[in-house]
Every structure is written in C-alpha cells, then in structure tokens.
Amino acid sequence: MSELQLRDLHSTEFPVPGELQDNLAITSLSKIYNWARRESMWPLLFGLACCAIEMIATAASRYDLSRFGMEVMRGSPRQSDLMIVSGTVTKKMVVPIVRLYNQMPEPKYVMAMGACASGGGPFKEGYNVVSGIDKYLPVDVYVPGCPPTPQSLLYGLISLQKKIDGQSLANMDDVPWYGVAPSEPTPIPVLGPDIIDPRQMDLIRQQAERAAAGLPYGVRELPKVIPVAPKKPSAPKPAAAPAAAVEVDPAKAERLAKREAALARKRVAEGGAPAPEEASEEAAVPAQVPAAAAPATSVEPTAPGKFDKAAMLEKIRARKANK
C-alpha cells in the first residue's frame, strides 16, 4: 500500500500523530470497505455494439483503464462488480442481459454507456430496440455520447467511484445489498408477440381487456393542453377586425370557463366577495362560451405580465437613491 493511498483513508475525527501517518490510519469501516471496492471494480467483459469498441480502446494502452484498477475484465458475471452496457439494447438481447445482471453477485453496479443504452439513441424508434437499459435495470451512471470517447467513459468510471465513496455500511436503506436478506432478482423479460416485462403484467392484462371490449388500447391519453399565456402583449388589433377573427378552440374556451366558475365557487366558499357577474354568466351559459371567452383570453392573461417601463424606471431610481 503506497503512502498516498494510506493518507486517503485518514479520518478527520481521529487524528493520527504526524510520525505515524504513513504507517497507521484510523478510519471508519464504511470508508475502508468502499476504498477497497472502488479501487478494484471489475467490469463484465461484455460488449454490445459500437460503444464496446471504445470500451476496448479505453482498456488499451493509450487510455489504460488499469490506472483505476478496472482492467480486470471478467468473462463470467459471477466474478464481476460492474456491468458496462456498451451499446444498443435490443429486445432479443435484453433477456440475456437481465439474466447476466441477476447472476452478478452484490454489490453490483450498472453503467449505461452511450446514447443507445441510456435512452435508445438514434435507434430508439426501431421495433426491436429497448429505449434504454434503465427500463429494466437500475442504472448508476449514464455516460452520454455516440459513442462516448474514452475520456468520457473514464469520467463515468470516476463518477462511479465517487458514488461508491458516498455509500454507507451503516445506512441499510442506502444500498440494497447491505440489508439483511438478499435482494430480489430482476424478473426476466419474456419474448412473446413483443417483449413482455413481467412487472407490467397487470397493465398488459388491463389493456388486453380493453382490446377484447373493442376499446382503443395500447395508447395513452396525451396530457391535456394547458393554455399558455402569450409572452408578449399582442399589438392592439385593428378595430375593423371582426370578432370571428380571434379563433378560439371551443374545448379550450369551455375549460377556461369551467376554471373561472371553479375559482368563483372557491371565492364564495372562502367567504370573499362573490364572483364577478360576467364569469358566472359564462359558466351558466356554455352555449355562448366561444364568443364570450374570446376577449377574456386575449386580455386577461396579458394584463398582469405587462411590462410597465415607467414604473420599472421609478424602481431603479429609488434603488439607486437608497444606495
């Protein structure tokens, strides 16, 4: 053990006399445990696609992974601590990947190397591509790039070492493997008509029922459109423009009206002043909503956000005077 490494271990709580500092360290169990693990991360020798080539280049002489104690790439998952998912994860391949992950002994870490492993990358839309390994496995470090350069892979590995440093033996919630019982294996996906994640069985069953009932299935309702206030106040419209020129989506206007009504009810419930007449009228007569709401949308949201130059100048002047 070199001098430098021993000093890394010194704890500030228990000062060691100066003459013993090179020979003795008093430290916490977590720290020494993490120190041993971070300096001997053995990755699984496991290349998927293009990123694997850069991973090999990182392990080769120029970038030299062995500086970090990580050059011992193990062919067997039983001997490895880190799975570098280096490339596009396909549906056909995710089955063996999950199986390999389950075979790795704890503590174990997963690194998503490159765009594909992180989120599908350029091939995301493909019918055989899994959009990111994090759909199946817990990922510790994401390394961006397509492919990431050896430098960024090294940075990812250093980040992983930092992450390990922060984990504590005492806090069992911190990482699953310091708990009492062994953690559950990740369920292995099944290849059916398409890939089936066993964790989604309930959802798949629900959707299958919808399909059997003739309802639309497999698609999720998009979130409702939230009307966005225009950023800039619109220029005053020419007086001649007819009201019909302001196009308002009826659904949107209806929602606005409902919101107004709800606000009004809230105000009443809180014991405040009753809502303005116009708003309650709007809520009461939905048939007239499009026409009635049109001016409201164009005026109301813009008023509070309007930039008052004179007032701002006044403020600035006051601040200067205070100084």
């Binding site: 019918y127 290849l191 008509p193 089936i196 994640d197 798949i204 299958a208 399909a211 059997a212 999720r220």
Partner: peptide, 22 residues
C-alpha cells in the same frame, strides 16, 4: 408518453398471456 406501457412495445389485440409463443 403516448404508449400505454411506457415502453417500446405493442401487442396484438388477441394477446393470450397464458400461452406465450416464443
């Protein structure tokens, strides 16, 4: 977000989960 499963998957309407056919 538009996919009910949140994954890159789709299943046929007559999906029979009791008999997976790989």
């Amino acid at each position: 977000e538009r996919n009910a499963y949140g994954h890159n998957v789709k299943y046929p309407a007559d999906l029979d989960l009791s008999r997976l056919n790989d």
